[in-house]
Each structure stands twice: as structure tokens, then as C-alpha cells.
Design a protein around this nucleic acid. Structure first.
Lengths: 62, 62
DNA sequence: TGCGGATGTAAAGCCTGCTTTACATATACG
DNA sequence: CGTATATGTAAAGCAGGCTTTACATCCGCA
């Protein structure tokens, strides 16, 4: 599952560490999702979606 | 995480078994999500969302 | 050169998502 | 009554999400 997290994160001028802290996960989790090593859980997808104030469908897609 | 799956499923006149087959998971998985025993994975949430033709945010919420 | 911040990635361990199997209850219908 | 369908739930086992620790690379800057 692809995602726009890296682009959104950079647009907000945040490091992976920053974003992880804001959302409540480790920087490795952010890194792994950006690298598509795995998909986030639904609750984490919601946190990311709310943080960037965008619907899940605009951040994650096939 | 709450959800509208039972309501949507009944509106479509489907059993848990039916919905599971249509979406590609077991009936116990449908049952467990309806009963909020656990949240679906993000890919499964997308399948459900596409099946009912509704955004994830209209099916799942806190 | 040397250091710090950002990133990539791997391994171990824990918890959760999902499966199959199995049993129980309820309801409808012959 | 007996049977079929729908649902609830539990247990074992495997796969995947997430953590911490750790090490490596790269880039910018003193």
C-alpha cells in the first residue's frame, strides 16, 4: 500500500523523529511506513490522517 | 474503534458469512470487528470501505 | 577533520489481526 | 420434533505491526 507520508512530512518540515513524536510512534515506524515495509494499523492511519488533516484515502492508496 | 459494519451489512441483506466471502475474510473476522474485539488492518478497512462504497471515515470512528 | 542531525535497516520480543476448528445458542421452518 | 441458517465465542497457531537497541551512511557545518 503506497502513501504520501514522506511528501506531507517534508511539506510540514518535520523529521521522521518529529512526526513520530507528534503522532506517538517511533521514528522507525514512520520510516518503515514511508519505505512501505509494512502498512500502519487502522488506528495509526487515523492518527496520521488527523495530524495532516486529510482523509485517509488521500494519504494511503493502492 | 467503533464502526457501522453491522448496520451496513444488514442494509445490504448480507450475513456475516456473506460479507466475509465477498471481502475475502472469515466470518469470525467480520464478527470480531462488529463486536469491536479488534480493529481491522488498514488493507481490510479499505476493502470494506470499497465494498460499501463509503469513505473509511464514514464506517470507522472513535 | 570531526561532530551532530537525519535517515536506513536489522534483530529480538511483544501484542494484535486473521485463520481454522470447534462448540453453543437462537430462530425459523418442514 | 429435527434440521438448517445465523450468530457468538474460544483456543491454537501463524503473520504482521510496533518497540527498543544498535550500527551504518550521508550531509552540512565548525
Amino acid at each position: 500500500m503506497k502513501n504520501q507520508i514522506r511528501e506531507l512530512r517534508l511539506k510540514h518540515n518535520l523529521s521522521q523523529q518529529d512526526l513520530g513524536e507528534r503522532i506517538g510512534v517511533s521514528r522507525q515506524t514512520i520510516n518503515s511506513i514511508e519505505a512501505e515495509r509494512y502498512d500502519p494499523s487502522l488506528p495509526l492511519a487515523f492518527k496520521i490522517s488527523k495530524f495532516f488533516n486529510l482523509p485517509i484515502e488521500e494519504i494511503f492508496y493502492s
